[in-house]
Amino acid sequence: MVQPLDTLIETPSQTAGPYVHIGCIPSFAGVEGVYPQDLGTSPIAEGAQGQIITITGSIYDGTGWALRDAMIEAWQADAAGRFPGQDGADPAVSGFCRFAADKDSGLFTLRTVKPGATPARGGAVQAPHISLWIVARGINIGLQTRIYFGDEDNSNDPLLSRIEQRPRAETLIAKPDGEGQYRFDIRLQGDGETVFLDL
């Protein structure tokens, strides 16, 4: 016999389903008037410091078809690498954004400031990145991934360095596509499958 552990187990996840927008982005579902506005429509307010950027992309399933019912959440630091709530963080950066793939095209757009590098444990420095959490019908537990930037120095990033196969690391790097524009596609399965995270 041993002493019992007193820790609890996390509540199991379930899929967000095809109607996730009713609860999380009501106006997208056609539910108007319950809240004054949807939560997290922009990660930045007027006057945010730093470079304003726009990232567009799609989420593809294993057949190459773009998801039309996914919801994505993004979380990031401000231009100086401070997370909202930390000392000295830019008050115009909430850092949180919620957006949906377009009902018809499957395209998503995230307009934000480019985040700065952030410190990690043991003196490491993380290259600028935006954390993503993806839920949808058919996804039983939300998928975590990150957007890095092709025009930044990513060579010392602790997470990217953990990926043995360089072609796989490339799946986390947004491609510059004009001034302040980036393309970032997410492939759930198959050729070019995006690296998903457990951390």
Partner: peptide, 26 residues
């Protein structure tokens, strides 16, 4: 659950200790 067939990754997740990116939140 048929939709999960084409929407589940085939490669393992990349496991690491959490960083401030996961330890902070809105």
């Amino acid at each position: 659950y048929k939709t999960s067939i084409s929407r589940s990754p085939r490669w393992p997740l990349l496991s690491m200790e959490s960083t401030p990116s996961e330890e902070t939140g809105p």
